[in-house]
């Protein structure tokens, strides 16, 4: 990974017993990025994140956060990291404010700073009335909110969140997505895992896709669309396919290419438009007899699924 990466994950392999949960996973996240780590259930997202924090010991490979390995030197590697675990289970005997205070102590913050931060963050995550109540009494969504506040107590440079919006209501989800975008605007690096394409699409600048322990894509969000949202295709089935028909279609300025397969034509379009009318009239002009005519659109959703299929192990 390039040296400027704040999070550099290289060739991470992790076994649970005989099961290979991560297979040589590599990616880099640079300052100010909102990196979406996308993958279906069981893909290895949580495993990657817990390894990044030094909670799991990798069998191979290495993680560096701001050039420090968190397994070897957690004190320096994690000082500027905020972490919100997946479905967090917090110490129920603390109140929200007490847990924030304790977490602040773990980061070595002085009393005054802790107090300021607690007031500011408890408000930011919308737990003002609940700050002094025991966490045991919180609902699932409230625990998630508190967990994000805890991750921000040390004013982190890097914010690592494992599916932070799970269990939040739509309003809170929107609020927090907004918050993450704002944090990145303040120069923080945000790493967020999700199995929701839509979520990643809304807030992330970069995407890593993982499936069954393997990275299947890593790059800017704009490139995902390019890489996987391939052209729309019109499929035409004819009684008979002639050479002149193919060359005629190829000459059309909205057609990119034409594939022939028996009596079927796959006509790739340059634009994402339904051009079946134009194509059928062209075929009629060349005296072709159409049996069927279908348009195949490819959405980001398809692209994602296609990417995941590409990552499947043999």
């Amino acid at each position: 990974m390039s040296p400027q990466s704040i999070i550099a994950v290289s060739n991470l392999t992790k076994f649970y017993g005989d099961f290979k949960a991560l297979d040589s996973v590599s990616f880099g996240v640079k300052k100010g990025w909102v990196y979406g780590y996308l993958g279906p259930n069981g893909a290895g997202k949580t495993t990657t994140i817990r390894t990044m924090l030094g909670l799991l010991r990798p069998d191979q490979g290495e993680v560096q956060i701001d050039d420090v390995n968190p397994t070897r030197d957690p004190v320096h590697a994690l000082q500027k990291v905020g972490y919100a675990p997946e479905l967090p289970t917090l110490q129920t005997f603390f109140s929200g404010e007490q847990l924030m205070d304790f977490t602040g102590k773990m980061f070595g913050l002085d009393k005054l700073t802790r107090k300021e931060k607690i007031n500011q963050l408890i408000d930011l995550v919308g737990l003002k009335e609940w700050g002094n109540k025991k966490i045991g009494k919180y609902s699932k969504g409230m625990v998630q909110r508190l967990s994000v506040a805890l991750a921000l107590i040390n004013d982190p440079l890097v914010l690592i969140m494992d599916e932070p919006t799970i269990g939040m209501d739509p309003e809170a989800t929107a609020h927090f997505r907004n918050l993450f975008t704002n944090l990145s605007k303040q120069g923080k690096t945000v790493f967020i895992s999700s199995h929701l394409l839509d979520e990643v699409q809304r807030i992330c600048t970069h995407v890593g896709m993982i499936n069954k322990g393997k990275m299947v894509f890593d790059g800017p969000i704009t490139q995902v669309l390019e890489a996987f949202t391939r052209k729309w295709v019109v499929e035409a089935e004819l009684e008979e396919v002639t050479k002149s028909m193919i060359s005629g279609l190829e000459k059309l300025d909205y057609v990119e290419d034409v594939e022939v397969e028996g009596n079927k034509l796959r006509i790739g379009l340059k634009e994402k438009k339904d051009l079946r009318g134009e194509i059928s009239s062209e075929i009629f002009k060349r005296k072709g007899v159409l049996l069927s005519l279908n348009l195949q659109k490819i959405t980001l959703e398809d692209a994602y699924l296609r990417a995941l299929r590409g990552g499947e192990r043999k």
Partner: peptide, 15 residues
């Protein structure tokens, strides 16, 4: 057992 070890050990502290 409670799942709080993650919270503690993901902080700047050695084992």
């Amino acid at each position: 057992e409670r799942g709080t070890a993650d919270i503690l050990l993901s902080k700047p502290i050695t084992k």
